[in-house]
Design a protein around this nucleic acid. Structure first.
Lengths: 230, 230
DNA sequence: GCATCATATTTTGTATACAATTAGAAAGGT
DNA sequence: ACCTTTCTAATTGTATACAAAATATGATGC
């Protein structure tokens, strides 16, 4: 597993990041350095680098002297995440419509179809990951690195928000939105594509905000302002 | 200097980041860990954390086994940086126009006026820093953390691009654009504000692209594709 | 039984030691 | 003189040791 020491750091980063995206690591889970060392067979030096990177992605919170936990975005965070996504993904779709080639459309169709399959098979983790992949692929097609990198972070944080607020049975967004978007893009209809994306994100945020935070970790949210003020 | 060990890491980060912004550290400058340790009076552990953070901001390039250098954005990077900035800052201005209060306008006016003073006094470093501060203040007023954070990185990279491509005598953008923007915002004119910002960024990018890269570090740029292909 | 304080254990933060890699300098051959 | 090769010094990468802090445990008094 940890034989290829050369890329072990980025590999471990990817593993933990994927586990967070796929909601196998849930918000507020504590990440003990020693345990991660044992799991991945490296020293704390490496693990700490990984945790620092994850904290800069805002998917892990690094509390000084008190260890790392999986981030638990608050509702105001969620609002800002979706606000940023609406702005960025509008621009991304606009560029992607013009930049996309036939095989890009094919790839998007394939991802969307895999999404349907995952949802049908009840594979929630795969569904969430593929939904994120769809949005990131659009950013890839648009071809702007800074925007893609920020979107990567925002998609990950969206996963955390879903894990935090949406009960596991519930679907988090309309299954067909991605298909509609691909077809609008295939038609070269920029304005329709943008409208679908905007409404897709608005709908997703609305569903997220509908849900009331579950009880166990709610205390952190409720008293966050007090702790911050102290 | 390094007495307050508790915040030393973020303090050192700020110092180096500021030095990069203000172009006291120029692109391709090598950052030797040992030297930084001596300068700031801490161990390599701390310095390496700082370098990792700076590399994730894309203002430092971390070459495996070969040390850290101040990043030298290529023209394609610059194009993408400005593309991202146009998109983001349009949204930021749009929000800021509605969100801004009288004292926000006052702050913006003050920054713009300090900018004029710095340019007049020939204090290039201060001028560059204040110009960045102006844009970041807008993001602050708009009140979206993810957008502000990405803009912070992009503004820093813009500074690097200016250091890399614009001769030190040359002004990098029209002195009055910021003033015009503040007045449009004070009038609550969203569309005019956005147009000024868009044209301001377009003009800045155009001037940057006009300049041909100077000779010394040009080799890195010219043969970058060969090195990448190998 | 419950709260409070003291102690022990765990966990994190920083420095340092050592190994691996690279860059530079000196020597030798053409 | 110039290019190659070899050795040395400098530099980076990782693990580990130790210090500081936080958490958990247990004893004592009420």
């Amino acid at each position: 597993m940890a034989r290829d020491k050369k890329h072990s750091e980025s590999w471990i980063y990817d593993q933990v990041f994927a586990a967070i995206i796929e909601q196998r690591l849930l918000p507020n889970t504590k990440l003990i350095e020693k345990d991660l060392c044992e799991v991945f067979g490296v020293s704390r030096t490496i693990i700490r680098k990984v945790l620092l990177r994850l904290s800069l992605d805002k998917v892990v919170e690094l509390r000084p002297n008190r260890g790392a936990v999986i981030a638990a975005p608050q509702s105001e965070d969620v609002r800002q995440i979706f606000e940023a996504r609406r702005l960025m993904e509008d621009g991304i779709v606009r560029k992607a419509v013009h930049a996309c080639r036939p095989d890009d459309i094919a790839t998007l169709r394939r991802i969307a179809s895999n999404e349907h399959a995952a949802v049908h098979a009840g594979k929630r983790s795969d569904g969430i990951r593929l939904s994120g992949d769809f949005h990131l692929r659009l950013a890839e097609i648009a071809g702007n690195r800074p925007l893609r990198e920020l979107l990567r972070q925002l998609v990950a944080q969206t996963s955390l928000a879903i894990a935090r607020y949406v009960p596991s049975g519930q679907p988090m967004c309309d299954e067909d939105d991605h298909d509609l978007l691909v077809e609008a893009m295939a038609d070269g209809d920029t304005e329709l594509s943008c409208r679908i994306m905007r409404e897709h994100l608005e709908e997703c945020e609305r569903r997220l905000m509908m849900e009331t935070p579950p009880g166990s970790s709610d205390l952190h949210t409720v008293f966050a302002n007090l702790v911050a003020a102290e």
